[in-house]
Design a protein around this nucleic acid. Sequence first.
DNA 1: ACCTGAACACCGTTCAAGT
DNA 2: ACCTGAACACCGTTCAAGT
Lengths: 193, 193
Amino acid sequence: MAEGVQYRRGNLREALLDRAIAVLRERGADALSLRELARDVGVSHAAPARHFADRGQLLDALSVAGFAVLAERIRDAVASDDEPGVRARRAADAYLDFAIGEAKLVEVMFRHEDGRDAEAIGRSATAAFAPIQDLFPHDEEGRAATVFLATLQGIAGLVNCGVVPAESVPGLADDAIARFFAPGADDEQGGGR
Amino acid sequence: MAEGVQYRRGNLREALLDRAIAVLRERGADALSLRELARDVGVSHAAPARHFADRGQLLDALSVAGFAVLAERIRDAVASDDEPGVRARRAADAYLDFAIGEAKLVEVMFRHEDGRDAEAIGRSATAAFAPIQDLFPHDEEGRAATVFLATLQGIAGLVNCGVVPAESVPGLADDAIARFFAPGADDEQGGGR
DNA sequence: ACCTGAACACCGTTCAAGT
DNA sequence: ACCTGAACACCGTTCAAGT
């Protein structure tokens, strides 16, 4: 009852990643073991080394995959011709849904580990966040967009660690949107109007 | 060259925690091993079990200790008779300093782990954040305070994971303070004035 | 009460060897 | 090119036994 995607040769890397994401969701990053993944997928314990030089590279691959999914969610959310506040609200909801629904994965994605491939992860993260930058056209330094993003990530973090109950998320999102997208909210930040 | 606080009998728990915080700062939570701590402190590998039933309880204890330090930093920062915006700015700086300076510890503090003692950690977290709630006297539901806190935590998180460079923190803090404490910033949130 | 030593069942990682 | 099997040095956790 362990394997979700059968290993059929040539796709060991994919099979390991698929199984890894399942274990991650169920039991968290600390429970991820290369040996167990190999066992689940029906391969020798040394086989994963060919595709992931060490455990850290597996986590890096999961992070990049996670940011790719997040990028899609955000892209879909902002894709409309509505006013910025409405699009921002959709982006916020999409972000919070993902960051809270996939809490364990998001924790890995935002992990600060010394041996990580910061280059690849940073690239995929920046790409995922680009549509949010576009919601602040007058924000040349990207401050407002970054702080808005930080606010969303922070709300998700407080919920995920249990400090804030999940039921209060919609209200918190209301407050955040009002602060960043109320008429004139940008006036003090030097962004023109 | 390992031991920082010598174990002198009767304080094994303290000695292990002191050594643990040092290892955590140097090499991160994943590198924390009960056996290594026992070795560093000069005790048998089974001795820690008396004080921490498992590895998770060690992390819980580190979290509670971390929130105690954070509580002190926040308390000191808001302790003045200045206007709320100034006190909030000091609290924000203190929070960001701590959350970025002690990134590895903060990651443990905000970790979402299934077997954690959510009761004790939640209590110490709420206590640490209480002074920030007080900065929003008209915020009866605690929304503004929570979102402000989320914003700070989010900024620290983005810096710690490498998405945002540390140099931009002061500018981001400026933006955040302006959104939450500019004259009239509370008007739209139903907080009266 | 507090700690030790041995034991068990796991890990990650490496490396010769197979096909 | 890709995988296996054995090997090494680690883990966490438990538990009888010592003082």
